[in-house]
Amino acid sequence: MILSINNVEVTFRVGPWFNRQPILGVAGVSFDVAPGETFALVGESGSGKTTLANAINGLQSISNGDVTFLGERIDTTSQRNMKPLRQQMAMMFQDPVGSLSPRMRVGDLVAEPFHIHKIKANIKEETERLLSLVGLSGDFANRYPHQLSGGQARRVGVARAIALNPKLIIADEPTAGLDVSVQGEVLNLLNDLRERMDLAMIIITHNLHVVHHVADRMAVMYLGRIVELGETESMFRAPAHPYTAALLSANPEPDPDKAKERISLPAEVPSLLARPSGCEFHTRCPWVQSRCKSDQPFANGEVRNIACHYPLSPGDKLPVKQSSI
């Protein structure tokens, strides 16, 4: 395993100084990532996926659990010892243009990892090589981020991420804000590089269609917990957790006549300040039973982890609302 995270919790403190309340942003998350694997973290906003990514990256300190990367505990290591590990782990942030320093040229942006880690190299040559690797011509080196389209900026981000041959790339919403015709380009590029460089990737996204095509395994997060984890294909075929099933059914498809069998959920997501008792999804679950309100289910299973007392099986009839268009 290249990365193992075990029972990770992230706590934020909110409120005025005389009444600080702890809230759990990430609540006991565990998973492993194998070399060369693409792992997807899926969830809606506020589900804690970005916080978790920052915790893995060491930008966010964790309050419990451990994160092991390449055999080293990165949650307890000092900033000084963390620096060499950062060469092996690259992070791509959500906003393609916003994650590039606005007053730096593309050439300098791509060369930055070399400067930070004081790596002796022919920087000009390396930048050109990296830019051509992501399909940008050498003239781009002189441009500023605001002169790039979203897709081009994303490519620059990718070039910078792979600059030092990392083992793991964490990509937060790599296709967010990109046009449909460009999303494929970026995903194909990441996939080519993954094959060529034997990269492991963690992709964080709310776009399930993207997950379907790129991820080997996926984990669905709800209120900072993983509710279901397993092989992507089998989860798309037969979601077991009601929340996964609802998310999959809520995915509008570009087919006007396709009958949409939808699981409609009450729109109100509980606040992290007042987590529901028992199963935290019970306030919105269409299959809720009395046990769900008191007992908290824990993930179990070897291949598929499901945190649910009454998981769905493939033949189950869904309590759906037929929408006709």
Binding site: S181, V182, Q183, H209, V210, P254
Partner: peptide
């Protein structure tokens, strides 16, 4: 035509290589 093909949601079969529209 191309736009519809590009949408990852349009592909029901799982594929690692998605269609794109080259150019700007």
């Amino acid at each position: 035509e191309r736009l519809l093909q590009c949408d990852p949601a349009g592909q029901s079969e799982r594929t690692r290589h998605l269609p794109t529209i080259p150019g700007e």
